[in-house]
Design a protein around this nucleic acid. Structure first.
Lengths: 358, 358
DNA sequence: GGCCATGCCGCAAACGGTTACAGACACGCG
DNA sequence: CGCGTGTCTGTAACCGTTTGCGGCATGGCC
């Protein structure tokens, strides 16, 4: 206790003008605190078996020396990275950005770093999976946002010790957080049918771009199902698909709306596509909600602004749920994969009305 | 060469059913290829001083064994991480998400990982800077997106060997990519003045939320300057500020537009705020472009949809430029910080017209 | 034929922590 | 007083790469 004063007198670390000269290592702290490196390691990480007095001395000395543990070294020795890797098809898309934001907030609070990868096609997906297996030590776990893995690949991944949670896609082997996409498609379509629409266009997502085929497929299924329940069969000509960019959606909608028997309403896979439809309608001087009804999915920040009726999914909540699943999964005790399905909600705005009489 | 066949016969790696049993290490590859670990290391990384024949044998064996180098170990030994850490105030905001997307694309192509951190206030900024100094070995370089560092902090950071590029904020010690924010403010304001507006509201950004005070300050300066050039003095009552969320902007605009002498036009710091203004106008049944003119900044994806006149900044290009600066900075040769200023562009849409005669 | 340059390759020492194991010490109890 | 128990601490063996340096052929040249 006598020599404590020597080391930790000042309030702030000595400036030390290190100039990248000689980085302080754990041994330096140990020497200055007159303990072993083992004790320093334990003290700094809050592990038990360190006397309070000793711990405080170590803490003081470490602060004094402005010691920063070297991460790769710690990771190598401990075999854990405190990092999670997340794969998203397009980091700039609204859904993904919002998801990553929520996920990041939670994981940062829990002491994890977030490694972000854009994974836009099957090659990149393959690469991501290979690179982020446990064996590489790049990350402790992986979250796949709208990046589907087939059952075999998922099982292989966990068999090698990989941990993953999937967002938007359900696989037996992985924990997942999803919504009921059949219900999404059905709810949207039913709304349009109730308003009296009989020619309802379906703007689907390209399977080429998307790595998660099941989402558009299930929503389309809901669309079919709603028609069937009403005793109707949708015209296949009313079905087109694009990527999730509004620009492409606009082009596709433009073409469809100029066809001989144009739809009186459109259901789009996401609000960004719906925006594209609205732009196309504007081009053709069709009034939204009168000449053309539109329903999207997501409840994008801007949907309210343009009065878009949509099926809301709580994106941020999906992010926090994914984080919870991750943290649980990172515990030493192994649990079977968890599957969480969140509710969606139909949000009625101005973009839907009865079909105009031609 | 004779034993090559033994190791690399098959097209794909043996399934090996590792079950996380015994990870393949570099020594295993070395043994199987009958070379030293040094040679394996060199061969796999494409370094010189390896005979072509040997290299191919090593490659084949490594593929056969499905070897994955352990990253922390490699990083510890090499003292480099091939990772860059990026700090953004809010990962979900459109500008940031788009920026991160572009940056990530470039850096991934160059073989770097992207570590994403939300840095929303000064404490988090402090923490980010401390955590990502060179000494921690967490990342090779840092990019600060709309997260300003004062001159002293920036110098201290580079003095310790840290490398950083700053986006949206210019500091002597750091490379930076910026736009001319005074011109942005001035261009937008001049447009409104030319249309005959005399009461132009300014929706600024909270300095509390934003870590980059200079952006709203400079734009406000352009606003003042444009007024001064026209021989006018803006009414301070027309100046409010919020965060960059449209919801807050909406509330603020709502209040301002209900005041006795309401502005006939508004200039917002970003398109998201402008959207909020447009919502407020809708609430009050004011017609955009007639009863109220609005100008934003960014050229957000949705701006076109709602006909928002705005000052476009090329976000993705800022991202690629930042990536170039980073890559140059990561070269062994030390260069002085580079400063790149990109052009902006006034995009005229429907949200601006002459003031309505009251 | 000797010598030097050159190209490949291996040995072994880092890199900077973590942690199993054992030692030291104090204490309480029979 | 001996012994078990429990708490604190140190010793040293890893963790899995990278890389400086030296060795050994080989080939060309004088």
């Amino acid at each position: 206790m006598a020599d404590l004063g020597e080391a930790s007198l000042a309030g702030r670390p000595v400036a030390q003008a290190a100039g990248a000269g000689s980085p302080v290592r754990i041994g330096d702290v140990a020497r200055a605190a007159e303990v072993s490196t083992a004790t320093v390691s334990r003290a700094l990480r809050g592990l038990p078996h360190v006397a309070t007095e000793t711990r405080q001395r170590v803490l003081a000395v470490a602060a004094e020396l402005d010691y920063r543990p070297n991460l790769p070294a710690a990771r190598l020795a401990a075999g854990t990275t405190n990092t999670i890797a997340v794969a998203v098809p397009d980091p700039a898309a609204w859904f993904n950005a919002t998801m990553v934001g929520a996920l990041g907030r939670e994981m940062t609070a829990a002491g994890y770093d977030l490694l972000l990868s854009g994974v836009a096609n099957l090659d990149e997906r393959q690469r991501f999976i290979e690179l982020n297996g446990v064996r590489s030590g790049r990350s402790d776990a992986v979250v796949l946002v709208d990046v589907a893995l087939d059952e075999a690949a998922a099982e292989a991944f966990v068999a090698q010790g990989g941990r993953a949670v999937s967002v938007g896609f359900r696989t037996k082997a992985l924990s997942s957080v999803t919504i009921d996409n059949v219900a999404v498609g059905s709810d949207a379509t039913q709304l349009l049918l109730r308003h009296g629409h009989r020619r309802i266009g379906l703007l689907s997502l390209d399977s080429g771009d998307s790595l998660n085929f099941s989402i558009p497929a299930h929503r389309a299924q809901g669309y079919e199902q709603a028609h069937a329940e009403a005793g109707l069969t949708p015209d296949p000509a009313l079905r087109v698909s694009t990527s999730n960019s509004w620009a492409e959606a606009r082009r596709a909608a433009h073409a469809l709306l100029q066809s001989a028997e144009r739809p009186s309403a459109m259901f789009a896979m996401c609000d960004e596509q719906a925006f594209g439809i609205m732009l196309a309608a504007r081009d053709l001087e069709l009034c939204i909600g009168e000449d053309l009804s539109v329903v999207g999915v997501d409840d994008h920040d801007q949907s309210r602004l343009v009065g878009l009726t949509t099926v809301r999914q709580h994106v941020a909540r999906q992010g926090t749920v994914a984080a919870e699943l991750l943290l649980r999964m990172l515990q030493p005790s192994v649990e079977p994969p968890q599957h969480v399905q969140l509710d969606t909600e139909l949000i009625i705005r101005d973009s839907v009305g009865p079909p105009s009489v031609d």
